[in-house]
Design a protein around this nucleic acid. Sequence first.
DNA 1: CTGACTTTTTCCCGTCACGGTAAATAACGG
DNA 2: CCGTTATTTACCGTGACGGGAAAAAGTCAG
Lengths: 198, 198
Amino acid sequence: MALGDAILACLTERPMTGYELAKTFDNSIGFFWKADHQQIYRELTKLRDRGHIQGREVVQSGKPNKLVYTLTPDGRAALRHWAARPSVPASIKDDLLVRLYALDSVDVEPLRTDLMARLEHHRDRFARYERLLNKRFPQGTAPPADVGKLLGLRIGLAHERAVAEWCEEAIEALSALTSGAERSNVVPLEENQRENKG
Amino acid sequence: MALGDAILACLTERPMTGYELAKTFDNSIGFFWKADHQQIYRELTKLRDRGHIQGREVVQSGKPNKLVYTLTPDGRAALRHWAARPSVPASIKDDLLVRLYALDSVDVEPLRTDLMARLEHHRDRFARYERLLNKRFPQGTAPPADVGKLLGLRIGLAHERAVAEWCEEAIEALSALTSGAERSNVVPLEENQRENKG
DNA sequence: CTGACTTTTTCCCGTCACGGTAAATAACGG
DNA sequence: CCGTTATTTACCGTGACGGGAAAAAGTCAG
């Protein structure tokens, strides 16, 4: 929704090109807002048309020339204005929850492997945020201008930790489910083999 | 993204009309997936065109007739198929994070009030989920078919708790910020008045 | 040297999401 | 009589998002 505003927010840090924005969204906002390069470029032209940013062409040798975008006073004002409006709480909207909701109409095995992949994913993110936190804010405190970035990292950490723990719980629950089903419906594999042997 | 699949998932529970779906999304999926009635109806016609659901008109007296939609075997198959594909981890995409990211280019006061509203919002959600949990799963356990729903509530709880706590932290951090600024830049109001009096 | 990859921007195509405005229908509550 | 509830449908836009592609000029590996 607020992709344009996210870009404006990025540009408060320093002027950037579309390419740079697309690459990382500056290693911090990018974790919360993924957007591919075409989206970024499209948004940049919109913002330029609105006069919120201003592009300055930098001639390069060896590479195509680049357009470095800077916030205009109008852009700053727009950002401030937008930031003063109440935010809309975001929904979770995770596919996994829908799958789990329909658990009994769905194959459990792919779900379990999916959950395990997700667990790893969230652990990775957690570790990444942790590293970033230790690097950028080793004291756990931030200078006034960066307090918001610290807070962003903090909720990222909390979120990834919570989701990872939840994944573990979900995997366990699924295991309990299938082992229960096997006990009542199918003979579990090991016992089956043991019985076949004995 | 998977609005159609979310609807299919809902319909695994029981046949429903668009109106019912729009109302609540069944008091559980609706917390994660908000969608207004026009979206739902649009999606329903698409699903019907694909043959994933089937509408049966129920004649009513006193109210307009309603269309009760039921999953078709094709719809069930589509849901299973969709659920077997790996899920894409959702981004956070919360406006608040963008505002905080650009904290030093933004007015703090509206942000603070926004954060307080959000705190209340997440506490409310938390309480709501807790009530629902105690009502639907008083033992903290679920029959096999409902395990996924329990897990959904669980992550909802964890999420709201984490975000609410984070809001508190953020509010504190902002307070520290402004009181710090007042100490260095502006004389705080009370002291100002005391000095004026003395 | 060739072929692959990086850097940088742009364009065109679509689908999905989302939301406002609104209308039709028919009962019930006040 | 007016407003609300229940129920569906329509039309309109904007915004998000992503595939596919192409330019242009360099670097680096094989």
